[in-house]
Design a protein around this nucleic acid. Structure first.
Length: 595
RNA sequence: GGGGGUGUAGUUCAGUUUGGUUAGAACGCUUGCCUGUCACGCAAGAGGCCGCGAGUUCGAGUCUCGUCACUCCCGCCA
């Protein structure tokens, strides 16, 4: 028996033809006489009919069929009776009258039904991933992912990029995320690290003279998971020589345009918007603004710096920020809703959420209204465009907290007020990031992007004089409030690289030890270069309108980084550990021996 | 590491507020009937460690404490 067609192909033009179809049984409908089977394969569903008038033997055999059995049938394509067409099926004009049946494989009753409309909990779906992948949504997501991947490869190939693989077993780096370690048997006691990204290798490739590199590559970070974070994830990674920021962004935009065209048939308009980091923070509070709605933040620090309301005035005096959002027409918010929003802001460390409702007569209803002079009120009214029916929310705190809390509140308000159009795609670049931020816990500067990002030329002097003011040549691409990619122009001189290491508190010795190979390579003739990496899973998630990257990864991990299908990770055998010279020393609390 | 949510039949859930005697529904499953269904229909039936462990109580799915799993978020992570 040889398959002649798949379950998506047959139409009324095929009537009379003898065909062989193979697939899974979606439904069996036994009418006592005639039996209908909806036969499903990857591509679609075709109805098969077992009629005792055609063959009593085959009909009898078909009675044993159950859902998810894998069968093959040979038969004639026939027209359905005129009033029995099924317009819901692409193959609904025909059916195949079975003359021969093979049951390739029986199937246990599945843990959940292979149907879109049937809900199943995430843990069940993960445990039986092979079944979930049979269902339309997940299957479509995986196919979209493939389309996106093919679009990227074709675009990059036709733009002169070379796909070059880089090692997975590589060297641990001190900056950035926690590494996944792999013990070395040949070199007992030593460990490889799985790459957090191929960053250094792609820079080395530029130094090698491959002037346009790309890779769709797995990356590994041993950090806690989120809906949009898995321990292993995929990047579209690229690097170019002899380019500046604008050139990288242009190529990257072309890539995104191509992917949206091929996957969704959407024509995006380029160039994308560009915001500086400072402007993004000022207007939206976050470095990944969602531009699908307004509700911009307003800095009223100057207006309230001398106000009788000490909470505001003191914050400004200590170098903090007072900012506000006007939720137009939302003065109807109840006390309960305001409390919920206050709790929401508290998650981001805001100590409070002040508010002012503007009543219909223009008067303010607010616990804090009495603290302001008429002039301050007028200024606020003007700055915030306050009209009857509005409610304004305020956060006063250190700049970071004010911006983060109010920026997140902005997103939350938009969700609650349903201001977000799910079918819109608002891209923006965010540029001119700071080089460093200060880590209060480790008492040192940390690279906002990574240690190989070049500073803006005009800011090189600030590396020593005022590191926090130095801006970098980094850029992020943000789509609907989600960072989907980021990159930078890199440092291509040893001197500058060493200066940046110094800022980061990486001494000469440590630099030689950890990055010696890079410093060595930089001295061997390095082209100016830069690149970008896209979070492929996140991108596909957005293309598929999913809210978790687990739904676009064939075999994802749980929030505790386990695989419910294979039960990984699991213990190693004593022999394995001996070969690696590893002894397990779990904390005493983990043993369950009685006291 | 911290906070929230969920956990009851194969699956999705109700029941938990206010403890009470036999834990329900839908879908699925099994069997029988049915020659035009397409989420077929009709009839009958099977199916429960109420996540796990302690405790309170005459009595716990329900209350308390602990614990485990899944999930969302903060921290962490670009």
């Amino acid at each position: 028996m040889t398959r002649t067609h798949d379950c998506s192909q047959l139409r009324d033009t095929d009537i009379g033809e003898e065909v062989v179809l193979m697939g899974w049984v979606q439904y069996r409908r036994d009418h006592g006489g005639v039996i209908f089977v909806d036969l499903r394969d990857q591509r679609d569903i075709t109805q098969v009919v077992f009629n005792p008038e055609v063959s009593t033997q085959v009909h009898e055999k078909a009675q044993a069929i159950r859902n998810e059995y894998v069968i093959g049938i040979r038969g004639k394509v026939t027209a359905r009776p005129a009033d029995m067409l099924n317009p819901k099926m692409s193959t609904g004009a025909i059916e195949v009258l079975a003359e021969e049946l093979r049951i390739f494989s029986e199937a246990k009753t599945p843990a959940f039904q292979i149907e879109e409309r049937i809900e199943a909990s995430e843990s069940i779906r993960l445990k039986y991933r092979h079944l979930d992948l049979r269902r339309p949504k997940l299957k479509q997501n995986i196919l979209s992912r493939h389309k996106a991947s093919m679009a990227a490869r074709q675009y990059l190939d036709s733009n002169g990029f070379t796909d070059i693989e880089t090692p997975f077993l590589t060297k641990s780096t001190p900056e950035g995320a926690r590494d996944y370690l792999v013990p070395s048997r040949v070199n007992q006691g030593d460990f490889y690290a799985l790459p957090q990204s191929p960053q250094l290798f792609k820079q080395l490739l530029m130094i090698s003279g491959f002037d346009r590199y790309y890779q769709i590559v797995r990356c590994f970070r041993d950090e806690d998971l989120r809906a949009d974070r898995q321990p292993e994830f995929t990047q579209i990674d690229m690097e170019l020589s002899f380019v500046n920021e604008q050139q990288v962004m242009e190529v990257a935009e072309g890539l995104i345009v191509r992917i949206f065209k091929d996957v969704l048939d959407i024509d995006l308009v380029t160039p994308f918007k560009q915001l500086t980091y400072d402007e993004a923070i000022d207007r939206f509070g976050l470095d990944r603004p969602d531009l699908r709605f307004g509700l911009e933040l307003c800095n009223i620090s100057d207006i309230v710096k001398d106000a009788g309301f000490k909470v505001f005035a003191d914050v400004v005096k200590k170098g903090g920020l007072v900012k506000a959002i006007n939720a137009k027409g939302c003065a109807t918010f109840t006390r309960k809703q305001i409390d919920e929003l206050t709790d929401f802001a508290a998650v981001y460390k805001a100590k409070g959420l002040a508010w002012i409702k503007v009543k219909e007569d223009g008067d303010w209803q607010s616990p804090i209204a009495k603290f302001f002079t008429d002039e301050e009120k007028d200024n606020m009214r003007q700055a915030l465009d306050m009209a009857p029916g509005d409610i304004v929310f305020f956060v006063a705190d250190q700049p970071r907290i004010t911006n983060e809390a109010l920026g997140q509140l902005r997103n939350e308000l938009a969700r609650r007020l349903e201001l977000i159009d799910d079918n819109r795609y608002e891209f923006t670049w965010v540029t001119e990031f700071p080089m460093f931020e200060y880590d209060d816990i480790e008492k040192r500067y940390q690279a906002l992007h990574h240690p190989f990002t070049a500073p803006m030329e005009s800011d090189i002097d600030k590396l020593e004089s005022d590191p926090l003011e130095a801006k970098s040549r980094a850029y992020d691409l943000v789509l609907n409030g989600i960072e989907i990619g980021g990159g930078s122009i890199r440092i291509h001189s040893t001197d500058l690289q060493q200066k940046v290491f110094t800022c980061l508190g990486i001494g000469d010795e440590e630099a030689r030890d950890k990055f010696g190979f890079l410093l060595e390579a930089l001295e061997s003739g390095t082209p100016p270069h830069g690149g970008i990496a896209f979070g492929f899973d996140r991108l596909v998630m957005l293309l598929c309108q999913e809210d978790s990257i687990r739904n676009v990864i064939a075999f994802p991990k749980t929030q505790k980084a386990t695989c419910m299908l294979t039960d990984a990770p699991s213990e190693a055998t004593t022999e394995q550990l001996q070969e690696l010279a590893i002894r397990i020393a779990k904390p005493a609390a983990a043993t369950d021996s009685p006291e």
